[in-house]
């Protein structure tokens, strides 16, 4: 028997927000849904969102799920997580947050949380009129696992976002390799590539963040001004570069001159690369905001 957390069982036995969502005629409100999975895979999720158009905010959410205990619990958790979030905030929800919300999922069931994250993305993309790339017309998305229709793009993404290094983990998260097993060697190759790229990432980003300039003397800032400026630097100077490589940075807190950030995705995984990145970000902030600033990495 699976070792489900109490929260998983609670959300399974008493699921929140299940059902469909009717289109409404109210101004400024849109209803949209995203789908992922299929009955042949053994799990499928249709996620409905009610969105306030002027603010891009999710007002409400419903799910319809075909799947096991943890698939239903993950769907229920997802509908709770997205409520009140802006679409950009919602897009930043990772499958890990869904799993964490449920007090964790058995490793072999992590794919349920991935399904939730994908359905959310599908719904938001649909609302925005962006077509999710399909493996058939995506050159980089070579089909790797034909049993479950998993592309290289998807394997790379889940490996980066969840810091997966073993083939078995990939199978647990997105099922790839769990059918006939003929693609296991290919998945292993992809993971080796991802690891190598990660190792190179920190160096590259450091090089890109030009830290050679002399620290500028910035006039005395109020705490609010300082935080705003730090946020601006992170948003405009640091994040775009990290995101291009599958990483991200979030400002967690500023205490005096201590800037606490959360490094996620490809950045947050290996100790040496985080150290390099932290140093690069610190330099950038010293130059553009205040020479007194130090950067600390905190866990999200």
């Amino acid at each position: 028997m699976w070792d489900y957390s109490e929260q998983v069982l609670e959300h399974f036995y008493n699921p929140r927000n299940h059902g469909t969502m009717e289109t409404v005629e109210e101004p400024d409100v849109a209803v949209v849904y995203g789908e992922v999975g299929s009955i042949s895979c053994g799990d499928a999720l249709r996620l409905h969102l009610k969105i306030k158009e002027s603010t891009d905010t999710i007002l409400d959410s419903r799910f319809q799920t075909f799947g096991c205990t943890s698939a239903i619990a993950s769907s229920s958790a997802l509908t709770e997580l997205v409520k009140g979030k802006t679409l950009d905030e919602a897009l930043n929800i990772t499958n890990h947050e869904i799993a964490d919300f449920l007090g964790g999922l058995p490793e072999a069931k992590m794919h349920c949380s991935v399904m939730g994250q994908e359905a959310l993305e599908a719904a938001i993309y649909k609302y925005r009129g962006i077509e999710v790339e399909h493996h058939d017309d995506d050159d980089e998305g070579t089909l790797i696992c034909s049993c479950f229709g998993i592309t290289e793009t998807k394997i790379r993404r889940v490996a980066i976002e969840n810091d997966l290094t073993e083939v078995e983990q990939i199978t647990n998260y997105i099922k790839a390799g769990g059918g006939c097993g003929t693609c296991l060697a290919n998945i292993e190759d992809i993971l080796i590539e991802v690891q190598a790229e990660k190792a190179a990432l920190a160096d590259r980003v450091t090089a890109q963040l030009d830290t050679s300039a002399e620290p500028a003397e910035v006039p005395n800032l109020t705490p609010i001004q300082k935080i705003t400026l730090i946020q601006q630097v992170l948003d405009t100077e640091v994040r775009p570069m990290l995101m291009a490589d599958g990483g991200n940075v979030e400002l967690y807190n500023v205490e005096g001159d201590r800037v606490q950030v959360i490094l996620t995705g490809a950045c947050g995984s290996c100790a040496s690369s985080t150290e390099t990145l932290k140093y690069a970000i610190e330099n950038k902030l010293k130059i553009l905001v205040s020479p007194a600033l130090t950067v600390e990495q905190v866990e999200g």
Binding site: G34, E35, I39, A44, F66, A122, V132
Partner: peptide, 25 residues
């Protein structure tokens, strides 16, 4: 079944789709 997105064999969903689908419509 009340939670399931499937309710009959005719559903478009029963086609063997394995990828996230978000066609604009």
């Amino acid at each position: 079944r009340a939670m399931s997105p499937f309710s009959n064999d005719e559903a478009e969903w029963l086609q063997d789709r394995t990828e996230a689908v978000a066609t604009v419509g």
